[in-house]
Amino acid sequence: MREIVLDTETTGFDPETGDRIVEIGGVELYNHVATGNTYHQYINPERSMPEEAFQVHGLGDEFLRDKPKFAEIGQAFLDFVGDARLVIHNASFDMKFLNAELRWMGLRQLPMDQAVDTLAIARKRFPGSPATLDALCRRFNIDNSSRTLHGALLDSEILAEVYLELIGGRQPDLVLTRRSDDGDSGTDSWRPRPRPTPLPSLLTDAERAAHEAFVDTLGDSPLWRQ
């Protein structure tokens, strides 16, 4: 199963009033294991960066001026995401911005059911407790000391660790895969093959005789003789 742990940084809170995305970061997981494949893009928002947003993100107008506009990277972003599940903290916020930008470009939008909201998971697991990314890092003893400013890729990397803890730890389920002859790892459709040589029976002669005697009492066509 392919997942993208995703984060965006924006100029404000509402794309419908003129706010835009200034940064996207994503970390790829496969079967809950980081593959090392990431997506990171700064974006020219085509507007000035408000002072309060600059204080949070550290991204100013001069830095963003020569970065590509969303229209120049939108298709590449969709190609990276594909149909992977999107793991996002407060998913409705990021999806609102992403779909606004995609809609303005005339590109396909991302359905909400493609997203998994780690904020909702945290609130369900720990009702009444703080559920910010920093609070969850403290709960799970995840080092976020480098997070002095909000950055999309760094936040995605931290969120990936938080997500794995939220769903049950670094090994949330037992995934048995094999390596094929050409070196590729197995897929979710893999099933074990029959043993080439059946295992020997552990029944003793006395146990086998007792079973046969019991079956004789069950009539003409018991299940064990069909």
Rank of each mutant, 00 (worst) to 15 (best):
F54N: 10
Q55V: 14
Q55N: 13
H57Q: 06
H57S: 01
L59N: 01
G60Y: 05
E62G: 08
F63L: 12
L64C: 02
D66C: 03
D66S: 12
K67I: 08
K69R: 15
F70R: 03
E72S: 07
Q75E: 15
F77Q: 06
D79G: 07
F80M: 08
V81F: 05
V81N: 04
G82F: 09
D83M: 05
R85S: 13
L86M: 12
L86Y: 03
V87A: 05
N90A: 10
S92M: 12
S92N: 13
F93G: 05
K96A: 09
F97I: 03
E101S: 01
R103A: 15
W104S: 13
M105H: 11
M105V: 07
G106Q: 07
G106R: 09
G106Y: 00
L107T: 07
L107W: 12
R108A: 15
P111G: 03
M112R: 15
M112G: 15
D117F: 04
A120I: 08
A120G: 01
I121E: 06
I121W: 08
A122M: 05
R125M: 13
F126E: 01
S129P: 01
P130D: 07
P130K: 11
L133N: 12
L136K: 10
L136F: 08
C137R: 06
R138S: 14
R138K: 15
F140G: 03
N141Y: 12
N141G: 10
I142C: 06
I142S: 05
D143C: 07
S145T: 11
S146V: 10
T148D: 14
G151C: 07
A152Y: 07
L153A: 02
D155H: 01
D155S: 07
E157M: 14
L159N: 03
E161Q: 15
V162Q: 04
Y163W: 09
G169S: 04
G169D: 02
R170A: 13
Q171W: 12
Q171D: 13
V175M: 09
R178N: 11
